[in-house]
Computed example of a mutant assay.
Amino acid sequence: MDKYDVLKLENQLCFSLYALSREVIKMYKPLLDPFDLTYTQYVTMMVMWEQEQITFKELGNRLYLDSGTLTPVLKKLESKGIVRKYRSKEDDRVVIVEITDSGRELKDKIIEVPENILCRFSGEEENLLSLKMQLDELLRKGLNKDCT
């Protein structure tokens, strides 16, 4: 084994994850276009359908998004009238994000998207479930270990 094999693209876990993620997200585009949602807006709404009301900080944590990425996503969703943001009455440093009635109605309209995506992986359900469990475990354990 050559000492530079570690630098080959084909040997990079990060590239495989990146490429697969891009391909899967591309599958969502034609399904989300009729609802005028991007993939990031869609996953944000998935949290909102679960929580209905959540702090900006907790929403960012759930989505693994920093405020610089989440802010424009929420502005767009707010302009569509499906979420609203406001400051907490108890602590004005805390921003609350809340789903609107239109956002709740969208949930019923978009319900078939996950099933449609799963259909595209027909025959791979067991592999997908295993992969998801492994990825969730890696996220849970955290990847911030210092190796120096």
Rank of each mutant, 00 (worst) to 15 (best):
V43T: 15
D92W: 08
R93A: 14
V43H: 03
L139N: 06
M46N: 08
L65N: 00
F121K: 06
V95Q: 09
Q41P: 00
I82N: 02
S88W: 11
L20I: 12
E78I: 03
V83Q: 03
V94L: 10
Y42N: 00
K76H: 05
Y86K: 13
I54L: 09
G103P: 04
T71E: 09
K85W: 08
N61I: 05
L131C: 08
Q41S: 01
I110C: 05
E125Y: 07
Y64K: 06
E10I: 10
S16P: 00
R140L: 11
I54H: 01
R22I: 12
L32E: 01
D108K: 10
D91R: 10
E125P: 01
D66W: 08
C14D: 12
I99F: 09
T40D: 12
L31V: 02
L106F: 09
L138D: 03
K3V: 13
G68Q: 10
E137P: 00
S130G: 02
R93I: 10
R22S: 11
V113Q: 07
G81T: 08
K3E: 11
L139T: 05
K76F: 04
Y18P: 00
L59E: 01
Y39N: 00
L31I: 04
L70P: 03
I99M: 07
T69N: 11
N116G: 02
K29D: 09
I25F: 05
L59I: 07
L70E: 03
V113E: 02
G81P: 00
Y39R: 00
V94E: 10
L32P: 01
N144R: 05
P114H: 08
E78F: 02
D5T: 12
Q12W: 08
L139D: 05
E115C: 07
S130C: 10
L70I: 11
L63V: 05
Y86Q: 13
E105D: 15
L65H: 03
T55D: 09
S67C: 06
E112L: 13
M1H: 11
K145L: 14
E78H: 04
M1F: 12
E58K: 12
M48S: 03
L135A: 14
I111A: 14
Y4G: 01
R120S: 15
E125H: 10
K145H: 13
K141G: 03
G60Q: 03
G68P: 00
Y64D: 10
